[in-house]
Amino acid sequence: MDRTKPAVITRRTAVRVIAGAGAAGAAAGVGGYLLSRDPDPLPARPELRGLAALTPAEGALVEAIGARIWPGDPADPGAREAGSVHYVDRALAGPYARYLSTYRIALGQIDAAARKLHRKPFVELEESTQDSLLDALSRGRLAGVRHGESFFLTIRVHVLEGVFSDPVHGGNRNLVGWKAVGYPGPFYGITEQEQRRFAEHQMPYRRLADL
């Protein structure tokens, strides 16, 4: 897979991130926070620096998990190419704010589990290793992650919402989610010919903004 080379977050950014995570951790009374045990430079692509709710590293982790839930590459785009993480981030900064602390805690614990088991942050692991970690998570069997099964259900739904919702909400970039399943998007009307085609549709791809 052609991944963008991880950027490096400066030490100062990292300190801020750690401080924020620490405060949330103290409030929730749970350990195992993202970044808090990692003395190494932190991977994150530049476009993940300006997220609204997630830290850049959390964004990178959500993106990496999303890329295993709905995998892809530039030729066959998946959740990463759809920018699903931007959908999730905007949702967590608004209508899904109630999930933010759940994300913060679980993402930290998942990353800590990856480092403990494989001595690397989750985002740097091989895809097959990531899959086996997520498989364990989805069964509630990833050591050190509390309520992992329920968190996996949550993030799975949010990632897929970011793949299949209109781009106005931040994901489904270039309509790659809809193109993958052969859905052209919203139209004010559909013709009889189109309804009885018994073949792939011949409508142009459209989004709400095109209406």
């Binding site: 295993r68 839930i69 709905w70 995998p71 892809g72 998946g78 899959d131 997520l134 989805s138 799975r156 993958a180 399943v181 052969g182």
Partner: peptide
């Protein structure tokens, strides 16, 4: 979830 899920759905 995963590659097999995507293959099915698409």
């Amino acid at each position: 979830w995963g590659a097999e899920y995507k293959r099915f759905l698409t």
